[in-house]
Amino acid sequence: MTDSALTPPLTKTAPASSLRRWWHGSSRLRFLIVFTVVVLGLWEWGCWVTGVRSFTFPAPSLVWRELIADPVWLAQNTAYSLGAALAGFAISVALGLLLSIGIVYSRILDRTLFTSLVATNAIPKVAIAPLFVLWIGTGIESKVLMAVLVSIFPMVVDSVVGLRSVDPGTLDLARTYRGSNLQIFWKIRFPGALPSIFAGMKVAISLALVGTIVGEFVGSNWGLGFVILQSQGQFNTPRVFAAIFVLSVLGILLYQAVDLIERRAMPWHVSHRNRHDDH
């Protein structure tokens, strides 16, 4: 609805699909920009009208000032959090895939590992974070570990579901031609599980960032979590907002990156077919 409102009538007559695609993409982007500007404007206006203190709720202009006040320092802290989150995510994906393969192929692992994983997932992992700092210190390792711990569960669960939900008919096809287990895995099970695996990765990437920040809250001298905690201690609410803003942008970018990889990895999947022609 909003798309059509913002898209000029040119779309209808545009002959090349690439041109149409571009229009669609740009209309989406333009909508986002307009929307953001309107929200920020209202926010700024609201702050001045109500006279709310910047300590309680800062206006966007103050947050912006904080953002550009010390860009190098902010960038360093962002890089620290990003590094920890990415490392945690990578470990989560690799380990999660290995575990899920084990669980799918081994009854014992399914009974033991999968069951205990489900059980431990019920523990609020945030509560364990202080333990990690005790055990392995306030270095980046505890953040990475926290990111892994928080993000591995959806990775395993989704991969297991994906690997299990293979069409038995395609397995029959493989059996007819005496395909080996390894062949069946690489040619049928794994590609068939990719949609699920990527769904798990999309949840995991966001959770890895959450885990990192929690780790930094508990004990750190670096990272966006540290920036938020420190600024809060100094009653510098605009800087807290600035850090949260950077964090949100980071979250969106990471998610989009996984989405992009997904589209590259499986252009055949339903969700990516003719994306631009069906509306």
């Binding site: 008919g169 395609t170 096809l173 007819t176 031609y177 040619k187 590609p191 068939g192 499986m266 055949w268």
Partner: peptide
Amino acid sequence: PPEDLGIVFQRDMLLDW
């Protein structure tokens, strides 16, 4: 499954990827 066998299943069983 016996050797040298070919099957057309009732469903086509084509792999989407």
